[in-house]
Design a protein around this nucleic acid. Structure first.
Length: 509
RNA sequence: GCCGCCUUAGCUCAGUUGGUUAGAGCGCUAGAAUGUGGAUCUAGAGGUCCCCCGUUCAAUUCGGGGAGGCGGUACCA
């Protein structure tokens, strides 16, 4: 036997961007999900679930000019060599589901779903490679009123999650505003268009001057890294910046009219005055969206903002985004750039990829993991109210069936309970275990108690409170703070009366 | 991907201008106290000083490369 060869140990480690979740994280997330779900259900949405894996082509994520999937998605090949990918959002799978069940679905289809999604990219604060999203969509609804309803539901959801009015804002814009402006100033190349959208998306991060650089030549960040710009000339830059910075509607309209004057608009094929996309957008905003928001009383939380663009190509009309207005800090107390916690928009072309037939749809997604980490950093999560189990101590091994019976009685009454499953030899250990577990109570039923036909209940919460004033161990032992005896048959009644347990039983029916 | 900072005990972190035995606090284990959780006291366990290569009589410390973490930036469906 080789004695100095240690067996190679496997290193216990997590893949970066992937996290274990603690009990309190899970309970907090579940609670958030419940709140979101009830808002969505109230609005008349029903759940659907799709799998984690889809055919890569269904997600539309093959690299251009290549038969390999995009690097941003986790992918593998099935035995027949077809590419499969883990879903990176819940919208693409929904489009697939709708296309596949098109004839059975009753449109307009109001649906929601939640689940883990996966992105193979660098994690950051509040950004993970596996994270939870909660989506809602209306499929087969072409009008702005559907977009308006999504915005209102987003606002209601934020408030249901305990984020107060004024601590968040829903920013709305219409893609056609910028599409129209780009058309008017002569930006037609797709790549350049995307660069412009991305630059504008950075407005809150870098400010107007930063965006100006990104629209033009490019920008060097603090670390010295250079980002290539969209390559617009001075006039194009200033047109875009004026539109984006115009704020609300009257001013936006003014600025857009100026753009039309400056550029002469977009001539139609006969050389006459063309139809201007941004005029459609303004009409949709002022004549359709705003009246709905105003009459429903949402105009203080849902703001028109021409700088809200969202990075995606597939949006075709209204886009919206939920943003937190308070500062988010990390464990060290540093301010962290957090960005939006949810967003969405109208995607009239997504389902057409499968059916060939245009199906208008609008929807949004809440980044549950991200929102949760923001609220966690701020200690804004509800305290976990669920009490730890009552611990029944094992005093006499020959009577464990009696102890187990007590546990059963407590459980039948809806009280979490367990019999101590460690080595029962040292009684102090059992109480220490219950204490460290934060148990509200421990039950003691040894030979003394058995003879007297009683049990002892140790109220560990009361004892913990009392211990603050007891400095020496002798008094502590003599007083046995929080401990009282009762008849064996009164077990459930007495335990139920303990404040921590009573409160929990009341709040949980 | 690029830039910056970081990596020493289970956790938070000292420290070594290159030297023999690398420390603290908290936590953990045991005892004081064998039927009583806390507090206190005593003792103990726990380390590849992230990894590899190089320089050196000697590297946890210096140099190069790599990995991991944090933050920024790019990408973000």
């Amino acid at each position: 036997m080789a004695k100095n060869k240690k067996p190679q140990k496997v290193k216990a480690r997590l893949i970066r961007g992937f996290n274990d979740r603690s009990s309190s994280d899970i309970r907090a997330t579940d609670e958030m999900m419940d709140k979101i779900r009830s808002v969505f259900e109230l609005y008349g949405f029903d759940p659907i679930e799709t799998p984690f894996l889809e055919y890569t082509d269904a997600l539309g994520k093959f690299l251009p000019d290549s038969d390999r999937p995009n690097e941003g998605v986790f992918s593998l090949q099935d035995e027949d060599e077809q590419w499969l990918s883990m879903r990176y959002d819940l919208t693409a799978p929904l489009a697939r589901h709708v296309a596949q069940n098109f004839n059975q679905i009753n449109m307009p289809y109001r649906t929601f779903r939640s689940g883990w999604v996966f992105r193979n990219e660098k994690p950051g604060p509040g950004r993970f490679r596996q994270f939870m999203q909660f989506d809602a969509d209306i499929v087969g609804a072409p009008s702005v009123s559907a977009d308006a309803e999504m915005c209102m539901m987003m606002a209601d959801t934020m408030e249901a999650l305990g984020i107060k009015r004024g601590d968040y804002v829903i920013r709305v814009n219409n893609r056609k505003v910028l599409d129209g402006v780009l058309q008017a100033i002569g930006v037609t190349e797709e790549g350049q268009k995307l660069s412009v959208l991305r630059a504008i998306d950075k407005l809150d991060k870098f400010g107007v001057e930063g965006v100006r650089l990104l629209l033009g030549e490019g920008r060097k960040d603090e670390s010295g890294d250079f980002t290539k710009g969209a390559g617009l000339d001075r006039a194009q830059c200033s047109a875009v910046l004026k539109v984006v910075g115009s704020g609300a509607i009257p001013k936006l309209k003014e600025v857009l009219d100026q753009v039309t004057l400056d550029t002469g608009g977009v001539p139609d094929e006969w050389g006459g005055m063309g139809h201007l996309l941004y005029d459609d957008a303004v009409f949709e905003i002022t004549e359709e969206l705003e009246p709905l928001l105003n009459s429903a009383g949402y105009s203080d939380r849902i703001k028109i903002d021409p700088s809200c663009v969202r990075g995606l190509e597939y949006y075709t009309g209204m886009v919206y985004e939920a943003e937190l207005l308070f500062d988010v800090t990390n464990e060290k107390g540093d301010n962290v750039v957090f960005g939006s916690v949810g967003g969405g928009g109208r995607y009239d072309g997504l389902i057409k990829r499968f059916t060939g037939q245009a199906v208008p749809a609008t929807g949004f997604s809440i980044g549950v993991s991200r929102l949760m980490s923001a609220l966690k950093n701020l200690n804004r999560l509800d305290e976990n109210a669920m009490p730890a189990p009552v611990v029944v101590c094992v005093m006499d091994k020959s009577r464990i069936s009696e102890y187990q019976k007590m546990v059963g009685e407590l459980r039948s009454a809806g009280i979490r309970a367990e019999m101590y499953q460690g080595n029962p030899k040292n009684f102090g250990k059992q109480l220490q275990y219950a204490d460290r577990r934060n148990s509200p109570a421990a039950i003691i039923d040894g030979s003394d108690e058995f003879e007297k036909e009683i049990i002892q209940i140790k109220d560990l919460v009361a004892g913990k409170q009392a211990s603050k004033n007891i400095k020496d161990n002798e008094t502590w032992k003599e007083q046995r703070p929080g401990q009282f005896e009762c008849k064996r048959d009164d077990l459930v009644e007495k335990i139920s009366a303990l404040p921590a347990i009573k409160a929990w039983l009341n709040s949980n029916g």
